[in-house]
Design a protein around this nucleic acid. Structure first.
Lengths: 120, 120
DNA sequence: TATACATATGAATAACTGTTCATATGTATT
DNA sequence: AATACATATGAACAGTTATTCATATGTATA
């Protein structure tokens, strides 16, 4: 009989009512995932730089690469991420593809982030 | 003399003026880093859930673990991230530590993200 | 001061992500 | 058709990150 008790449930301290309310109000999985995917896109320096550059004018891939001083492939990969998050759109003109911001929220979100950063 | 030319610069297509302007207006590295760190915090489902839960009421670690149905350690680790990003604050009451939202921006940012997600 | 409980933390691991390299695709020009 | 250029893409690799497990710390209570 030297055995320890079987662990039934590690959680002991619970404010039942609060937990219940919070659980009931939980965002559904889809919303959570879309939300985190949305923010993830902003959580990378390269992508922020691209968005910020496009905030000023549309640009082709080469231009963006030149601005960020990174190679074309890296930019292209990141543009794909931004594209599938619908944050940028593009138009073709001959060989050149011009990218620009797709969504008005982008600017707001960036600006809000900047405000946050600067207030500290 | 069968050698290829030495690669001088891979970038060929440049709209010089646009690139110059964008380069001049680039955010400085510090701002970029703080900004991406800020957004990175929102780019994780667990942390979003925690923030959303705390949006309703302050809660202790155990409560949060119960709400998210995750173990205490995982929550604790994520609370550390949120704490160092100054998105949550805490107060001690005996053994129990209550966490709550620290920053008004948090709610705004979350709400904006939600608005974005729902408009698609 | 011994025990129980709430929380924190370090190490290990598995999964994910960004960049690079090589190469493919698509478009214009000769 | 052949060439050049702008962009895209797949594979590989390195670095990062979230979770788990085991354990430590801190606080109350018997």
């Amino acid at each position: 009989m030297g055995k320890k008790l079987i662990e039934v449930c590690e959680i002991q301290c619970i404010h039942e009512e609060d937990v219940k309310v919070a659980k009931d109000n939980m965002l559904n999985d889809n919303t959570i995932n879309e939300l985190t995917e949305f923010f993830k896109v902003f959580g990378d320096a390269t992508r922020i730089k691209i968005l910020h550059a496009l905030f000023q004018t549309e640009m082709c891939v080469c231009d963006i690469a030149a601005v960020l001083e990174m190679n074309q492939s890296a930019i292209s990969h990141q543009l794909r991420v931004l594209k599938s998050a619908r944050l940028v759109k593009f138009r073709r003109e001959g060989k050149v593809i011009y990218y620009s911001l797709d969504d008005n929220h982008v600017i707001d979100v960036l600006q809000q982030g900047l405000a946050h950063v600067k207030h500290r």
